[in-house]
Amino acid sequence: MLFASFRYSGEYGGLAPWYYIEDGGFTLDLTLENWRRLFETEIYLSLLIKSLTYALLTTLICVLMAYPLALMIARSSKRYRDLLLLLVILPFWSNFLVRIYAWMIIFSPQGALTAALNVVTSALGLEPISLMFSSTAVITCLVYVHLPFMILPLYANLEKHDNRLLDAAQDLGANRFQCFWLITWPLSLPGIYAGAVLVFIPSLGIFAIPDLLGGTNGIMIGNVIKQQFVESRDWPFGSVLSLVLTAITLLLVLLAAKLGRPAGEDNGKK
């Protein structure tokens, strides 16, 4: 792919030959044009930043939503734990696309959600709003799809915590909030990092959700890459965009791996 990013695109799409033979001489036919195009066209970089923001927001919302849930499951009695975990993974039983289409119905202008919201907005004398084809719709669906990937690693981490540590903290004078903030939270960070990687990376590259729910506003870098390869058939430039995305992802994974291994090593496991 790195090689492809330095080649010209072919006459009918795909890749042009990387050399030509003229007058018996062998000449390389490579270019930096594709890379120049990335840095000189504002739209691609801003799209990249927008996608990073979406993925980051999705990850943050997932942490906020998954933490109480994972904590509740980890602290519930053994009897209900399996049932609750089953409920978490239940959405996986239906197809990914089917679930996105379900959100299309929920967000549609005639849908109950939009209708209910517009009753409120008209009562407040505001313009009616549309949920479909907006960044709100895209992020909501991104969170919905990726939430289990945050809950599961977090649960796996929280479930291993030694409750006696909380007893000890309380015994030594910590109130409930301090017990959570000084003991449970720092010990659960590896779980959060693991979940963040599992949510952030697929969110960053996704194209199906913005395709269906994003309209023109909600487009993400994944859509552009898909476009370059499938519709524009500009493989070299598609390669450039993919490489940039891969590099960013790799950097973040390395960062998460570094953060995920804090001092104290065994992280509250017995």
Partner: peptide, 8 residues
């Protein structure tokens, strides 16, 4: 089991 905080 001592219950020392492993991250401190």
């Amino acid at each position: 089991n001592y219950a020392l905080f492993p991250h401190m």
